[in-house]
Amino acid sequence: MFLLAISNQQEYYEKRLEEMLKEMPHFVEKYVDDKLYYRSPLTLFNYVRNFKDFFEWLVTEGIVICDSVKNFPVDALENLSLDDVNNYFKFLSRKKYVKGNELQQLNERTINQHKSALRSLFKYLTVEAELSNGKAYFERNVMAKVPVKKVKETLSERARKITEKIFIGDMDVEFLDFVKNEYPASLSPSQKRFFERDKERDFAILSMFLGSGIRLSELSNLRLKDIDFSSNQISIIRKGGKKDTIAATPSSIEDLRAYLDVRKEKYKAADGDNEYVFVKRYKGKAAPLSNRAIENIVYKYTKAFGKRMSPHKLRHTYATNLAKETGGDIPLIMTQLGHTDSDTSLLYVHSTIERQREAAEKLDARRKHRKK
């Protein structure tokens, strides 16, 4: 049923998706089977989880009678009223969950994700699927009547929020200097042993995020054959399985080379072309680092620096710096970051507006100085 996995992340979510489908009705299995070529296992896993929440709510509320989600009748979806569906999204909007020590509600973006998932399922069942009789599962699509409310934010506001969460100015350089020169002094002897063991690997990971704008899944799936030291480029697999080649800063490539010089000795790692770049030592052998392990590495060092950040925030930092250095070259930013929507790249241009204002004031100072 499933396509051959091309990455750790895809393989991981294919397995989780396969497990979840064992609890789902046949029409959801068919939906996933038909959609897997077009959507990633991660997206489909999240969609199926949304379907499960919806089915369970319908059963709990007594709107649909069945003994389990596995036996959920497809015709029950055809007969749902608009009130039933709207009440579900009202339920989501009032749902409380604990984050940290705070009680929070689902935001509009998350509710929109639930709507998108269910709209996709209903469209499939009413338009795209074809049974043996040549017809779809049913005709009435109540979910098409549910609007997706756009979260109203200007690019400037979205950019402002990004700027608050990333390294600004030379903070990225200061952060790397901190990891290399100051962080070890804060460690206990036992902590220092682990740091010394992994310092080249961990530093290369941080440097690659800040020196190329690479995504987490792209970095975790790097193979030795993907690195071109002569041109300071790396080959990656983008979302949707698309191959691409991007530039990396010479410094980040040098940091990567320094790690590879000790990789075989420290992790007992093979050096074949298809071997993963970033590995750990597990039961005496090298094993690829998972996305979660890489996230934890980033969290650990950024938290010690005083600003806990995710790999995605390091990517945002790189993109903002790239926008500044290129004067807001949107096509270049789109190419380097793998964006398909120019509005996403524009976020980083907007996040440099404050710097542009400061630059304008400095330029104007020359004129004022001339008048004196």
Rank of each mutant, 00 (worst) to 15 (best):
M1D: 13
L4N: 05
N8V: 09
Q9I: 10
Q9K: 13
Q9F: 12
E11K: 07
Y12A: 00
E14Q: 15
E23M: 14
E23Q: 13
H26I: 14
F27D: 02
E29W: 14
Y31P: 04
V32W: 10
Y38P: 01
P41I: 03
N46A: 11
K52W: 06
K52C: 11
K52P: 08
D53P: 03
F55L: 04
L58W: 12
V59T: 13
T60Y: 12
T60L: 12
D75Q: 12
L77D: 02
L77S: 01
L80S: 05
S81I: 06
V85P: 03
V85Y: 03
V85I: 14
Y88V: 04
F89I: 06
F91K: 08
F91C: 01
L92H: 04
L92I: 08
K95A: 07
Y97V: 13
Y97I: 11
V98C: 06
K99Y: 15
N101P: 03
N101Y: 11
L103K: 12
N107L: 08
T110N: 07
I111H: 09
I111E: 11
N112H: 12
Q113A: 11
Q113L: 10
Q113P: 02
K115V: 10
S116V: 11
A117W: 09
A117L: 09
L121W: 12
Y124D: 10
E128D: 14
E130N: 07
E139C: 06
P147L: 05
V151H: 07
K152Y: 09
A159C: 12
E164N: 09
I166Y: 10
G169E: 11
G169T: 11
E174H: 07
L176I: 07
D177G: 05
F178N: 00
V179R: 01
K180H: 09
K180C: 05
Y183I: 02
A185C: 07
S186L: 14
L187I: 09
S188R: 06
R193Q: 15
R193M: 11
R197V: 09
R201D: 04
S207V: 02
M208I: 13
F209M: 00
L216S: 00
S217A: 14
L219W: 10
K225W: 10
I227W: 02
S230I: 13
S235W: 07
I236F: 15
K239L: 04
A248T: 15
A248H: 04
P250V: 03
E254K: 06
K268Y: 12
F278C: 10
R281G: 06
R281I: 15
R281C: 10
L289R: 01
L289M: 15
A293W: 09
A293K: 09
V298C: 11
V298S: 04
Y299Q: 07
K303R: 15
A304G: 08
K307H: 14
M309T: 01
M309F: 06
S310R: 05
Y318D: 00
N321G: 15
N321E: 06
L322G: 00
L322S: 00
A323P: 05
K324W: 15
E325V: 05
E325K: 11
G327T: 03
M334P: 04
L337Q: 05
H339T: 02
H339I: 02
D341A: 01
D341F: 12
D343C: 02
S345C: 09
S345V: 03
V349Y: 00
T352M: 03
E354N: 05
R355E: 15
R357P: 07
E358M: 06
L363E: 08
